[in-house]
Amino acid sequence: MSWLEKIPQKIQRVVGAVNKKNVPEGLWSKCDSCQSVLYKTDLEQNAEVCPKCAHHNRIGARARLNQLLDPDTKTEKRIEIGANVEPIDPLKFKDSKSYADRMKLAQKEVGEKDALIVIQGKIHAVPVVAAAFEFKFMGGSMGSVVGERFARGVDAAIKSQSAFICISASGGARMQEGLLSLMQMAKTSAALTKLSQAGLPYISVLTDPTMGGVSASFAMLGDVIIAEPNALIGFAGPRVIEQTVRETLPAGFQRAEFLVEHGAVDLIIDRREMRQRLANILSGLMKLPKVA
């Protein structure tokens, strides 16, 4: 390339940099559903639900738990459960990248050690242990750590006579842990038998997406199963089904509304009402005073 040709490129680069500065990154976002341009702070204050069309954006595990749980007070603090349980690479799994590397990358990018965060606290003074999936961490996939944290969460709920809530957002089992991840389906489901025996409620909240091994275990075992609007929920992924049956899938297939229609889910709740209505349901099940 001659020096003459290089000049326009340099100009381009300079112009590009200026343009970027004019639109500060991260201030605005566009709704995936209605394409409205939204001010990010507005979106955050609206629980990541589009104020124009009520599209529910995916949300991180900690933000989710912060929305649901009562804030810390001087005397009562929320307790994180199983934070010291961290993943290893038991199979020395390797595709184009090793599992160990993928895991490290996810940990660095997401700032979490694995895909499930479990916190003990209260919702409108109702005692709960709440688990939430971090979808950004390897697609919210369930491996040994997710299963162990879930089981410890259930244990903590029994010990503290709390309800257990799990907010799912997961592609399913984590392939990189092979059969160990499949066994987490059995482990988590078994843990829930003890919660039932203790007479404590389990609420399963299904958010976009809840698929595969997560859907086919604890996610479908709630005393009450709640879904967020339009969440994709199912056992097999839509593409796999399409390839198997060689038919076009019906409109709205595997969406939350479809599941309510087919009797698989109790009700759909808008995220902005989730905290209030969870408290309402739990206070009823636990025979606690009516929530204000």
Binding site: M185, S189, S215, A216, S217, F218, A219, M220, L221, I233, G234, F235, A236, G237, V240, I241, T244, V245, E247, L249, P250, F253, Q254, H262, G263, A264
Partner: peptide, 17 residues
């Protein structure tokens, strides 16, 4: 488990769980 439309409609996930 069979990945089919009817299987999903009748609750494949719940049946396994």
């Amino acid at each position: 488990a069979y990945p089919g439309i009817g299987a999903e409609e009748r609750g494949q996930s719940e049946a396994i769980a």
